[in-house]
Design a protein around this nucleic acid. Structure first.
Lengths: 266, 266
DNA sequence: TCACATTTGTCCGTATGTATC
DNA sequence: AGATACATACGGACAAATGTG
């Protein structure tokens, strides 16, 4: 791994224009830790540093970049929150290159919900349309291996229900697998984000075994329709499934409102 | 504003379970700056701190939380990158509460693209389907004020073209306005993210005036169809517009490949 | 099992640049 | 223009965690 040379106190504040085609240079003069963060990010983009690799220790990075350790640490915070590295304490610890960017996006999406920049109603409406679109793609060109994953998911969930255990995580996972089966990463990301909000919301409400059981049944029928490549039936099943879950959500809410809870999510 | 009391050296590592329904507490013991970050985030969620408000100075925050300034700084980095605050240096400076979460999501989405976790082809395919869906919503229930914004956008772009100036930003903005006109924030976010990738890609290629001009013409026709509430025509126009832009992208790429550039985006 | 080395996490003091009044 | 207040950054120090011999 190669890291750029050192330059203390930022001599003469050189332009340092490596990017091309940038009209109107950013107003904000980049701070040292930002430069270092983007520098390391570029190295990861280039593939020189890959998930699994380890960055040098903070002290060494400070040496190589010619800055203090505090600056390095703030740069690492950026990379960590962006999903590029994960920190590990102790002897053989350090900054490990990972790729959890997807997670980062879901978290920010959830932040938007908690900032009340979107309502649960908007999420539901968009979710139904998007998920139907995804399902169309799945039926058109899903690989059998992906369909098998869906099938396995439902089986696992069924067994849990049979043992009186909730299948919360599996039910969430089902929709992620659906997006994956579409073969388009963009859908995976969008679905993951939307599902994060739904999961958050559901965990606020609490789930009972009966609902979990109903959900698994719905999922099972959808998978069967997918296997038969029965486009229309699959879409109808999905829509009624999502609408049903939505109704249950709203039922929970209205019952809670009567007990004094006034948070409005819809 | 109220900030929690101080407690140095984390006495006895108390469970501190404020969240309900959390089975399997997180493996990673939260670090001080993470706790402080989520603490402040909660205050913002609650509405006690709103965009426009200012946080106390780093020194004061360090006092109130009973930690060192470095810890506060790292917490502020998290909040800054998450889009909750923006730092301002100088006399009356400090941490200003803002809401640029949307921006954060677009940036991460772009990161995924640069990590080659998705291809330009996937983006285009998903974009066409999603944007058609958005447009359907626009025609069904867009407010006239939103349609006027679309109209004004096209007019502004036309004037720029007439003066021989590119309308890059306006052309990008058009699609964001379209999402806004759908009335669903979820679509706004998804569109913003996808458009961020498209804009990045386009800036890599460079644009000529002729393309910009063609784009504006397409947009204008789409707006006209929206005003007439002509659903089918609008969707057809949009699809051919997006496919056309995609063809031009691919044309650029194949010409560049002949000149030795081998980056594969599709 | 125990000591040791390494590395992150945290604190303090200090200096500097910068925007505001 | 000068004073002030603040973020930015450096360096040294110690605590805590974790793997290793």
């Amino acid at each position: 791994m190669e890291l750029p040379g050192s330059h203390k106190t930022n001599p003469a504040k050189a332009p340092l224009v490596t990017s091309r085609e940038v009209l109107f240079n950013p107003i904000k003069t980049k701070r040292a830790f930002e430069k270092i963060s983007t520098e390391i990010k570029q190295i990861i983009f280039k593939g020189t540093l890959q998930p699994g690799d380890k960055l040098p220790s903070e002290a060494e990075l400070a040496n190589q970049f010619g800055v203090g350790r505090q600056t390095i640490r703030e740069a690492l915070r950026l990379l960590e929150l962006s999903g590029f590295i994960s920190m590990q304490k102790g002897g053989a610890g350090g900054a490990l290159v990972v790729d959890t960017i997807l997670n980062t996006i879901s978290n920010s999406f959830l932040d938007l919900f908690q900032m009340k920049r979107m309502t649960m109603n908007e999420v539901t409406v968009a979710r139904i349309e998007i998920e139907k679109m995804v399902l169309s793609n799945v039926i058109l060109h899903a690989e059998t291996s992906d369909i098998e994953l869906l099938h396995a998911n439902v089986q696992r969930a069924r067994e849990k229900i049979a043992h009186g255990v909730q299948a919360f995580d599996d039910n969430i996972q089902f929709h992620k697998l659906l997006a994956k089966a579409s073969g388009n990463q963009v859908y995976v990301i969008v679905m993951e984000s939307i599902i994060a909000v739904v999961a958050h919301f559901r965990s606020l409400l609490g789930m009972d075994l009966e609902l979990s059981s109903q959900v698994v049944e719905d999922h099972e029928k959808i998978v069967e329709a997918i296997i038969r490549r029965d486009h229309d039936t699959a879409l109808k099943l999905l829509e009624s499934h999502l609408l049903d879950v939505d109704r249950r959500f709203k039922g929970f809410i209205s019952r809670q409102k009567k007990r004094g809870r006034t948070e409005d999510y819809f």
